[in-house]
Design a protein around this nucleic acid. Sequence first.
DNA 1: ATACAAAGCGGAGGCGGCCTCCATTTGGCG
DNA 2: CGCCAAATGGAGGCCGCCTCCGCTTTGTAT
Lengths: 193, 193
Amino acid sequence: MSPAQPAARKPRADVARNRARILDTALRHFTEHGVGTSLEALAKDAGVGPATLYRHFPTREALLAAALDVRGEALLARLEPLQALARSDADEGLRQWLLALEGYLNTFSGLPEPVLAALASHSSPLAANCERLVKLTDDFLRAAQRDGTARPTVRARDLFLSALFLAWTDRAPLGEDALPTLRELLETGYSTR
Amino acid sequence: MSPAQPAARKPRADVARNRARILDTALRHFTEHGVGTSLEALAKDAGVGPATLYRHFPTREALLAAALDVRGEALLARLEPLQALARSDADEGLRQWLLALEGYLNTFSGLPEPVLAALASHSSPLAANCERLVKLTDDFLRAAQRDGTARPTVRARDLFLSALFLAWTDRAPLGEDALPTLRELLETGYSTR
DNA sequence: ATACAAAGCGGAGGCGGCCTCCATTTGGCG
DNA sequence: CGCCAAATGGAGGCCGCCTCCGCTTTGTAT
Protein backbone atom coordinates (compact mmCIF):
# COMPACT_ATOMS: atom_id res chain seq x y z
CA MET A 1 0.00 0.00 0.00
CA SER A 2 2.84 2.38 0.60
CA PRO A 3 3.85 2.81 -3.08
CA ALA A 4 1.09 4.21 -5.26
CA GLN A 5 -0.37 2.12 -8.08
CA PRO A 6 1.96 3.06 -10.99
CA ALA A 7 5.45 1.65 -10.68
CA ALA A 8 7.67 4.19 -8.95
CA ARG A 9 10.59 5.52 -10.87
CA LYS A 10 14.05 4.80 -9.51
CA PRO A 11 15.47 7.99 -7.97
CA ARG A 12 18.17 9.65 -9.98
CA ALA A 13 21.78 8.95 -9.11
CA ASP A 14 22.90 12.58 -8.88
CA VAL A 15 20.42 13.29 -6.12
CA ALA A 16 22.18 11.07 -3.63
CA ARG A 17 25.57 12.23 -4.83
CA ASN A 18 24.73 15.89 -4.39
CA ARG A 19 23.14 15.31 -1.04
CA ALA A 20 26.26 13.56 0.16
CA ARG A 21 28.51 16.31 -1.17
CA ILE A 22 26.45 18.99 0.52
CA LEU A 23 26.32 17.18 3.82
CA ASP A 24 30.02 16.54 3.72
CA THR A 25 30.79 20.18 3.02
CA ALA A 26 28.30 21.28 5.64
CA LEU A 27 30.13 19.27 8.29
CA ARG A 28 33.33 21.03 7.38
CA HIS A 29 31.84 24.51 7.21
CA PHE A 30 29.80 24.22 10.38
CA THR A 31 32.88 22.94 12.17
CA GLU A 32 35.14 25.68 10.91
CA HIS A 33 32.81 28.67 10.85
CA GLY A 34 29.99 27.81 13.22
CA VAL A 35 26.30 27.37 12.61
CA GLY A 36 26.03 30.82 11.03
CA THR A 37 28.32 30.00 8.13
CA SER A 38 27.35 31.33 4.71
CA LEU A 39 25.14 28.81 2.93
CA GLU A 40 26.01 30.43 -0.37
CA ALA A 41 29.71 29.81 0.15
CA LEU A 42 28.93 26.33 1.38
CA ALA A 43 27.01 25.52 -1.80
CA LYS A 44 29.78 26.86 -3.99
CA ASP A 45 32.33 24.83 -2.07
CA ALA A 46 30.19 21.73 -2.49
CA GLY A 47 30.11 22.38 -6.21
CA VAL A 48 26.36 22.85 -6.44
CA GLY A 49 24.13 25.83 -7.04
CA PRO A 50 22.24 27.51 -4.22
CA ALA A 51 18.93 26.10 -5.47
CA THR A 52 20.19 22.54 -5.14
CA LEU A 53 21.24 23.13 -1.60
CA TYR A 54 17.87 24.62 -0.71
CA ARG A 55 16.00 21.81 -2.43
CA HIS A 56 17.79 19.18 -0.37
CA PHE A 57 17.70 21.18 2.87
CA PRO A 58 15.01 23.84 2.81
CA THR A 59 16.30 25.67 5.87
CA ARG A 60 19.54 26.13 7.69
CA GLU A 61 18.07 24.13 10.55
CA ALA A 62 17.31 21.18 8.31
CA LEU A 63 20.91 21.07 7.17
CA LEU A 64 22.07 21.48 10.72
CA ALA A 65 19.87 18.61 11.85
CA ALA A 66 21.31 16.33 9.18
CA ALA A 67 24.86 17.32 10.10
CA LEU A 68 24.12 16.72 13.77
CA ASP A 69 22.78 13.29 13.01
CA VAL A 70 26.14 12.41 11.53
CA ARG A 71 28.03 13.76 14.50
CA GLY A 72 25.53 12.16 16.82
CA GLU A 73 26.88 8.76 15.94
CA ALA A 74 29.96 9.52 17.96
CA LEU A 75 27.78 10.32 20.95
CA LEU A 76 25.75 7.17 20.56
CA ALA A 77 28.95 5.17 20.38
CA ARG A 78 29.71 6.38 23.89
CA LEU A 79 26.24 5.57 25.08
CA GLU A 80 26.53 1.87 25.83
CA PRO A 81 29.67 2.11 27.97
CA LEU A 82 28.06 4.92 29.93
CA GLN A 83 24.91 2.90 30.43
CA ALA A 84 27.03 0.07 31.75
CA LEU A 85 28.78 2.48 34.09
CA ALA A 86 25.43 3.81 35.25
CA ARG A 87 24.31 0.35 36.22
CA SER A 88 27.14 0.08 38.72
CA ASP A 89 27.37 3.78 39.66
CA ALA A 90 24.33 5.78 38.68
CA ASP A 91 25.74 9.04 40.01
CA GLU A 92 28.96 8.82 38.05
CA GLY A 93 27.09 7.59 34.99
CA LEU A 94 24.82 10.62 35.03
CA ARG A 95 27.75 12.97 35.50
CA GLN A 96 29.65 11.45 32.62
CA TRP A 97 26.61 11.46 30.38
CA LEU A 98 26.06 15.14 31.05
CA LEU A 99 29.68 15.81 30.17
CA ALA A 100 29.30 13.90 26.93
CA LEU A 101 26.11 15.80 26.21
CA GLU A 102 27.85 19.09 26.84
CA GLY A 103 30.54 18.13 24.39
CA TYR A 104 28.00 17.13 21.81
CA LEU A 105 26.10 20.40 22.18
CA ASN A 106 29.38 22.08 21.44
CA THR A 107 29.91 20.22 18.19
CA PHE A 108 29.57 23.43 16.24
CA SER A 109 30.15 26.93 17.48
CA GLY A 110 26.83 28.67 18.03
CA LEU A 111 24.89 25.42 18.21
CA PRO A 112 23.22 26.08 21.57
CA GLU A 113 21.04 28.85 20.11
CA PRO A 114 19.16 26.81 17.55
CA VAL A 115 18.97 23.92 19.99
CA LEU A 116 17.27 26.10 22.55
CA ALA A 117 14.89 27.35 19.89
CA ALA A 118 14.18 23.77 18.84
CA LEU A 119 13.43 22.78 22.42
CA ALA A 120 10.72 25.39 22.46
CA SER A 121 9.36 25.31 18.95
CA HIS A 122 8.63 21.62 18.60
CA SER A 123 8.40 22.02 14.82
CA SER A 124 12.08 22.35 14.12
CA PRO A 125 14.05 19.59 12.40
CA LEU A 126 16.27 19.63 15.48
CA ALA A 127 13.40 18.99 17.85
CA ALA A 128 13.28 15.23 17.33
CA ASN A 129 16.99 14.97 17.91
CA CYS A 130 16.71 16.97 21.13
CA GLU A 131 13.81 14.98 22.46
CA ARG A 132 15.74 11.79 22.01
CA LEU A 133 18.60 13.23 24.02
CA VAL A 134 16.28 14.43 26.75
CA LYS A 135 14.81 10.96 26.85
CA LEU A 136 18.25 9.42 27.30
CA THR A 137 19.07 11.95 29.97
CA ASP A 138 15.90 10.92 31.71
CA ASP A 139 17.07 7.30 31.80
CA PHE A 140 20.30 8.28 33.50
CA LEU A 141 18.50 10.63 35.84
CA ARG A 142 15.92 8.04 36.93
CA ALA A 143 18.67 5.58 37.75
CA ALA A 144 20.41 8.17 39.90
CA GLN A 145 17.16 9.09 41.59
CA ARG A 146 16.47 5.43 42.38
CA ASP A 147 19.90 5.33 43.98
CA GLY A 148 19.10 8.45 45.91
CA THR A 149 22.04 10.38 44.47
CA ALA A 150 19.90 12.82 42.49
CA ARG A 151 17.20 15.04 43.97
CA PRO A 152 13.72 13.78 43.12
CA THR A 153 12.43 17.22 42.08
CA VAL A 154 14.91 17.56 39.24
CA ARG A 155 13.70 16.83 35.73
CA ALA A 156 15.57 15.59 32.70
CA ARG A 157 14.85 18.74 30.76
CA ASP A 158 16.48 20.82 33.48
CA LEU A 159 19.63 18.76 33.20
CA PHE A 160 19.58 19.01 29.44
CA LEU A 161 19.30 22.76 29.74
CA SER A 162 22.16 22.77 32.22
CA ALA A 163 24.37 20.95 29.73
CA LEU A 164 23.21 23.38 27.07
CA PHE A 165 24.13 26.27 29.32
CA LEU A 166 27.62 24.91 29.84
CA ALA A 167 28.05 24.37 26.12
CA TRP A 168 26.85 27.90 25.52
CA THR A 169 29.45 29.38 27.84
CA ASP A 170 32.18 27.02 26.66
CA ARG A 171 32.74 29.06 23.56
CA ALA A 172 33.31 32.31 25.39
CA PRO A 173 36.85 32.47 26.73
CA LEU A 174 35.99 33.33 30.31
CA GLY A 175 38.48 32.68 33.06
CA GLU A 176 40.59 29.57 33.19
CA ASP A 177 38.48 27.90 35.84
CA ALA A 178 35.08 29.37 35.08
CA LEU A 179 33.69 26.23 33.50
CA PRO A 180 34.63 23.72 36.22
CA THR A 181 33.20 26.02 38.86
CA LEU A 182 29.92 26.33 37.01
CA ARG A 183 29.76 22.59 36.49
CA GLU A 184 30.26 22.10 40.19
CA LEU A 185 27.53 24.59 41.02
CA LEU A 186 25.06 22.83 38.77
CA GLU A 187 26.10 19.46 40.09
CA THR A 188 25.49 20.63 43.60
CA GLY A 189 22.11 21.75 42.40
CA TYR A 190 20.89 18.43 41.13
CA SER A 191 22.76 15.95 43.28
CA THR A 192 22.11 15.07 46.89
CA ARG A 193 25.71 15.14 47.96
CA MET B 1 45.72 70.85 31.21
CA SER B 2 42.79 68.89 29.88
CA PRO B 3 41.75 71.41 27.18
CA ALA B 4 44.45 72.07 24.59
CA GLN B 5 45.92 75.54 24.22
CA PRO B 6 43.58 77.07 21.56
CA ALA B 7 40.09 77.88 22.83
CA ALA B 8 37.85 74.90 22.13
CA ARG B 9 34.89 75.38 19.89
CA LYS B 10 31.47 74.95 21.43
CA PRO B 11 30.00 71.66 20.21
CA ARG B 12 27.24 71.98 17.67
CA ALA B 13 23.67 71.81 18.84
CA ASP B 14 22.47 69.24 16.34
CA VAL B 15 24.95 66.67 17.61
CA ALA B 16 23.23 66.30 20.95
CA ARG B 17 19.83 66.45 19.31
CA ASN B 18 20.63 63.66 16.87
CA ARG B 19 22.25 61.54 19.51
CA ALA B 20 19.15 61.83 21.67
CA ARG B 21 16.86 60.96 18.76
CA ILE B 22 18.90 57.93 17.86
CA LEU B 23 19.09 56.68 21.42
CA ASP B 24 15.38 57.19 21.87
CA THR B 25 14.58 55.27 18.71
CA ALA B 26 17.08 52.57 19.61
CA LEU B 27 15.29 51.94 22.90
CA ARG B 28 12.07 51.45 21.01
CA HIS B 29 13.51 49.25 18.28
CA PHE B 30 15.58 47.08 20.61
CA THR B 31 12.54 46.62 22.79
CA GLU B 32 10.24 45.72 19.94
CA HIS B 33 12.54 43.75 17.65
CA GLY B 34 15.38 42.57 19.85
CA VAL B 35 19.08 43.33 19.71
CA GLY B 36 19.31 42.20 16.08
CA THR B 37 17.01 44.91 14.78
CA SER B 38 17.94 46.56 11.49
CA LEU B 39 20.15 49.56 12.15
CA GLU B 40 19.24 50.94 8.76
CA ALA B 41 15.55 50.96 9.62
CA LEU B 42 16.37 52.37 13.02
CA ALA B 43 18.27 55.26 11.47
CA LYS B 44 15.47 56.01 9.06
CA ASP B 45 12.95 55.94 11.88
CA ALA B 46 15.11 58.32 13.87
CA GLY B 47 15.17 60.66 10.89
CA VAL B 48 18.91 60.50 10.34
CA GLY B 49 21.12 58.96 7.70
CA PRO B 50 23.00 55.74 8.32
CA ALA B 51 26.29 57.58 8.49
CA THR B 52 25.09 59.75 11.34
CA LEU B 53 24.05 56.72 13.32
CA TYR B 54 27.43 55.07 12.76
CA ARG B 55 29.28 58.24 13.66
CA HIS B 56 27.56 58.47 17.02
CA PHE B 57 27.64 54.72 17.70
CA PRO B 58 30.31 52.99 15.64
CA THR B 59 29.05 49.50 16.36
CA ARG B 60 25.81 47.83 17.27
CA GLU B 61 27.31 47.05 20.64
CA ALA B 62 28.07 50.69 21.34
CA LEU B 63 24.46 51.60 20.70
CA LEU B 64 23.34 48.68 22.78
CA ALA B 65 25.56 49.76 25.64
CA ALA B 66 24.12 53.26 25.57
CA ALA B 67 20.58 51.93 25.50
CA LEU B 68 21.35 49.58 28.38
CA ASP B 69 22.71 52.45 30.41
CA VAL B 70 19.35 54.14 30.12
CA ARG B 71 17.47 51.02 31.11
CA GLY B 72 20.01 50.37 33.83
CA GLU B 73 18.67 53.30 35.80
CA ALA B 74 15.60 51.27 36.63
CA LEU B 75 17.81 48.53 38.00
CA LEU B 76 19.86 50.94 40.04
CA ALA B 77 16.68 52.38 41.47
CA ARG B 78 15.94 48.97 42.93
CA LEU B 79 19.45 48.65 44.29
CA GLU B 80 19.20 50.55 47.55
CA PRO B 81 16.08 48.80 48.86
CA LEU B 82 17.69 45.48 48.05
CA GLN B 83 20.87 46.45 49.83
CA ALA B 84 18.78 47.37 52.86
CA LEU B 85 17.04 44.01 52.66
CA ALA B 86 20.40 42.27 52.37
CA ARG B 87 21.56 43.87 55.61
CA SER B 88 18.76 42.18 57.51
CA ASP B 89 18.52 39.01 55.39
CA ALA B 90 21.52 38.41 53.20
CA ASP B 91 20.12 35.23 51.70
CA GLU B 92 16.87 36.81 50.59
CA GLY B 93 18.71 39.92 49.45
CA LEU B 94 20.95 37.87 47.18
CA ARG B 95 18.03 35.93 45.78
CA GLN B 96 16.07 39.09 45.01
CA TRP B 97 19.09 40.74 43.46
CA LEU B 98 19.62 37.80 41.17
CA LEU B 99 15.99 37.97 40.12
CA ALA B 100 16.34 41.68 39.38
CA LEU B 101 19.50 40.94 37.43
CA GLU B 102 17.75 38.27 35.42
CA GLY B 103 15.02 40.72 34.53
CA TYR B 104 17.56 43.33 33.51
CA LEU B 105 19.42 40.88 31.31
CA ASN B 106 16.12 40.31 29.60
CA THR B 107 15.57 43.96 28.81
CA PHE B 108 15.86 43.27 25.11
CA SER B 109 15.28 40.01 23.34
CA GLY B 110 18.60 38.44 22.40
CA LEU B 111 20.56 40.47 24.89
CA PRO B 112 22.25 37.53 26.63
CA GLU B 113 24.40 36.76 23.58
CA PRO B 114 26.27 40.04 23.36
CA VAL B 115 26.50 40.17 27.13
CA LEU B 116 28.22 36.81 27.20
CA ALA B 117 30.55 37.96 24.47
CA ALA B 118 31.29 41.12 26.42
CA LEU B 119 32.09 39.13 29.54
CA ALA B 120 34.78 37.38 27.60
CA SER B 121 36.11 40.06 25.29
CA HIS B 122 36.88 42.79 27.80
CA SER B 123 37.07 45.31 24.97
CA SER B 124 33.37 45.61 24.31
CA PRO B 125 31.40 48.72 25.22
CA LEU B 126 29.21 46.39 27.27
CA ALA B 127 32.09 45.08 29.31
CA ALA B 128 32.23 47.98 31.75
CA ASN B 129 28.53 47.70 32.38
CA CYS B 130 28.84 43.98 33.03
CA GLU B 131 31.77 44.32 35.37
CA ARG B 132 29.85 46.81 37.45
CA LEU B 133 27.02 44.33 37.77
CA VAL B 134 29.36 41.50 38.68
CA LYS B 135 30.84 43.77 41.32
CA LEU B 136 27.42 44.45 42.80
CA THR B 137 26.62 40.75 42.72
CA ASP B 138 29.82 40.18 44.61
CA ASP B 139 28.69 42.52 47.37
CA PHE B 140 25.46 40.60 47.83
CA LEU B 141 27.28 37.29 47.62
CA ARG B 142 29.90 38.23 50.21
CA ALA B 143 27.20 39.24 52.65
CA ALA B 144 25.45 35.92 52.19
CA GLN B 145 28.71 34.07 52.59
CA ARG B 146 29.45 35.93 55.84
CA ASP B 147 26.04 34.81 57.02
CA GLY B 148 26.82 31.28 55.98
CA THR B 149 23.87 31.04 53.63
CA ALA B 150 25.98 30.90 50.48
CA ARG B 151 28.67 28.34 49.77
CA PRO B 152 32.15 29.82 50.09
CA THR B 153 33.40 28.29 46.84
CA VAL B 154 30.87 30.15 44.70
CA ARG B 155 32.02 33.25 42.86
CA ALA B 156 30.12 36.32 41.78
CA ARG B 157 30.79 35.65 38.13
CA ASP B 158 29.18 32.23 38.44
CA LEU B 159 26.04 33.81 39.81
CA PHE B 160 26.04 36.43 37.11
CA LEU B 161 26.31 33.70 34.50
CA SER B 162 23.47 31.85 36.18
CA ALA B 163 21.25 34.89 35.92
CA LEU B 164 22.35 35.29 32.32
CA PHE B 165 21.44 31.70 31.62
CA LEU B 166 17.98 32.17 33.08
CA ALA B 167 17.49 35.31 31.01
CA TRP B 168 18.64 33.39 27.96
CA THR B 169 16.07 30.67 28.46
CA ASP B 170 13.35 33.10 29.47
CA ARG B 171 12.74 34.03 25.88
CA ALA B 172 12.18 30.48 24.72
CA PRO B 173 8.67 29.34 25.55
CA LEU B 174 9.57 26.11 27.29
CA GLY B 175 7.14 24.50 29.67
CA GLU B 176 5.04 26.47 32.09
CA ASP B 177 7.21 25.65 35.07
CA ALA B 178 10.57 25.24 33.41
CA LEU B 179 11.98 28.52 34.67
CA PRO B 180 11.09 28.18 38.36
CA THR B 181 12.53 24.69 38.41
CA LEU B 182 15.78 25.86 36.89
CA ARG B 183 15.96 28.76 39.32
CA GLU B 184 15.53 26.36 42.15
CA LEU B 185 18.24 24.06 40.82
CA LEU B 186 20.70 26.92 40.58
CA GLU B 187 19.70 28.20 43.97
CA THR B 188 20.34 24.81 45.49
CA GLY B 189 23.70 24.96 43.79
CA TYR B 190 24.94 28.13 45.41
CA SER B 191 23.11 28.18 48.71
CA THR B 192 23.82 26.10 51.78
CA ARG B 193 20.23 25.23 52.47
C1' DA C 1 24.51 91.28 9.46
C1' DT C 2 27.75 88.75 6.85
C1' DA C 3 31.37 85.71 5.62
C1' DC C 4 34.21 81.93 6.64
C1' DA C 5 35.72 77.33 7.89
C1' DA C 6 35.19 73.42 10.46
C1' DA C 7 32.09 70.05 11.86
C1' DG C 8 28.37 67.36 10.89
C1' DC C 9 25.16 65.32 7.75
C1' DG C 10 22.81 61.92 4.67
C1' DG C 11 22.27 59.84 0.25
C1' DA C 12 24.28 56.85 -2.91
C1' DG C 13 26.45 52.81 -3.71
C1' DG C 14 29.45 48.62 -3.13
C1' DC C 15 29.38 44.29 -0.84
C1' DG C 16 27.69 39.95 0.74
C1' DG C 17 24.17 36.85 2.18
C1' DC C 18 19.40 34.91 1.52
C1' DC C 19 16.30 32.74 -1.34
C1' DT C 20 13.53 31.81 -5.86
C1' DC C 21 12.39 31.63 -10.66
C1' DC C 22 13.10 29.23 -14.95
C1' DA C 23 15.68 27.84 -19.03
C1' DT C 24 18.66 24.07 -19.54
C1' DT C 25 20.66 19.66 -18.64
C1' DT C 26 20.72 15.05 -16.78
C1' DG C 27 19.54 10.43 -16.35
C1' DG C 28 16.07 6.60 -16.09
C1' DC C 29 13.18 3.94 -19.06
C1' DG C 30 10.96 2.06 -23.06
C1' DC D 1 18.25 6.00 -29.41
C1' DG D 2 14.78 9.16 -28.06
C1' DC D 3 11.47 10.69 -24.69
C1' DC D 4 10.13 13.17 -20.62
C1' DA D 5 10.08 13.96 -15.83
C1' DA D 6 13.21 15.31 -12.48
C1' DA D 7 16.94 17.82 -11.08
C1' DT D 8 20.13 21.47 -11.70
C1' DG D 9 22.49 26.04 -11.30
C1' DG D 10 22.85 30.67 -12.67
C1' DA D 11 20.77 34.99 -12.68
C1' DG D 12 18.58 38.24 -10.15
C1' DG D 13 15.63 40.59 -6.56
C1' DC D 14 15.79 41.80 -1.88
C1' DC D 15 17.74 43.39 2.35
C1' DG D 16 21.06 44.77 5.72
C1' DC D 17 25.80 46.46 6.62
C1' DC D 18 28.93 50.04 6.25
C1' DT D 19 31.68 54.01 3.93
C1' DC D 20 32.76 57.57 0.80
C1' DC D 21 32.06 62.36 -0.44
C1' DG D 22 29.70 66.45 -1.87
C1' DC D 23 26.64 69.43 0.56
C1' DT D 24 24.55 71.79 4.57
C1' DT D 25 24.50 73.46 9.15
C1' DT D 26 26.43 75.93 12.91
C1' DG D 27 29.54 78.58 15.69
C1' DT D 28 32.66 82.46 15.48
C1' DA D 29 35.15 86.40 13.93
C1' DT D 30 34.62 90.68 11.63
